[in-house]
Simulated assay, not measured.
Amino acid sequence: MGILSGNPQDEPMHYGEVFSTWNYVMTSNKTIADTQMLVNHVGDNDLKKLLNESIEAAQAEVKQVSEILMANGVALPPAAPEPPTVELNDIPVGARFPDADVAATAAAGLATGLVTCSQIMGQSIREDIAMMFGQFHTAKATLGGKFLKLMKDKGWLVPPPLHHHKSEE
């Protein structure tokens, strides 16, 4: 039997796993609060649903990672306070974020989350942590696909220059 080859939950976390998971909880808490604030700015119901789906997924991830940290004696980072809910019409027009910008911000955050999950998976020696972040990665990719479709359907997607090269025969 090799080193660290028992039940992964009985194995200690290494310092990289501790820092990365702790940091993941901290940044996810901030992302949840930011997304809750952005929901106040959104008029499109489809976008609002996707944002709320993002919030619920992030809250579930934070809960799951927090349980691992607490089981390993690691104090949790502070959570950002939940912003107040306001009506869209109470936000002055010049201070509102347009729906297209909110969608792009959320999609960019998911893309960043994909990279973060991949990094944590790559540095993990505990299989349970690597698998958990693999599940988060897959869920983020699926949600990112939903945002991409929504942005295309609504005409919000700003594509990079498109290459229309036809080979010469």
Rank of each mutant, 00 (worst) to 15 (best):
A100N: 02
I125A: 12
G2K: 06
E11C: 01
S5V: 13
A33N: 09
K154E: 05
A100Q: 10
T31V: 14
T21I: 08
L51N: 04
F136G: 00
A80F: 12
A100K: 01
G43L: 03
L143D: 01
W156K: 10
D34W: 13
S54H: 02
T142R: 15
V158H: 05
G94H: 06
L4S: 12
S54Y: 08
S20M: 14
E127N: 08
H164Y: 09
K149A: 11
M131T: 14
K154S: 00
P77H: 15
L110V: 07
P83K: 15
K154Y: 03
A104W: 04
A139T: 07
Q135W: 11
S28W: 04
M131H: 14
P84Y: 11
P81V: 02
M13G: 03
D10H: 08
K48E: 01
G43I: 09
T85K: 15
P92H: 08
V74T: 06
V39E: 05
D99G: 10
V18P: 09
Y15R: 15
L88C: 11
H14A: 00
A57N: 09
D44K: 07
L50Y: 07
T116C: 05
M26E: 06
Q64W: 05
T112E: 14
E87I: 12
K154I: 06
Y15H: 13
S118G: 13
G145L: 03
V62F: 05
F133E: 02
S28Y: 05
T35N: 05
G122C: 03
I68H: 10
P98N: 15
L51I: 12
A79W: 13
I3P: 00
L162Y: 15
E169G: 07
V93R: 08
V86E: 11
K140H: 11
I129Q: 10
M121W: 09
N40C: 11
K63A: 09
T138M: 12
I91H: 12
G122H: 08
F136Y: 02
M1Y: 13
N29Y: 11
Q59H: 13
D128K: 13
N52F: 10
S20I: 05
P83T: 15
S28M: 12
D44G: 03
T142E: 14
L110R: 02
E67W: 00
G144F: 01
G145E: 03
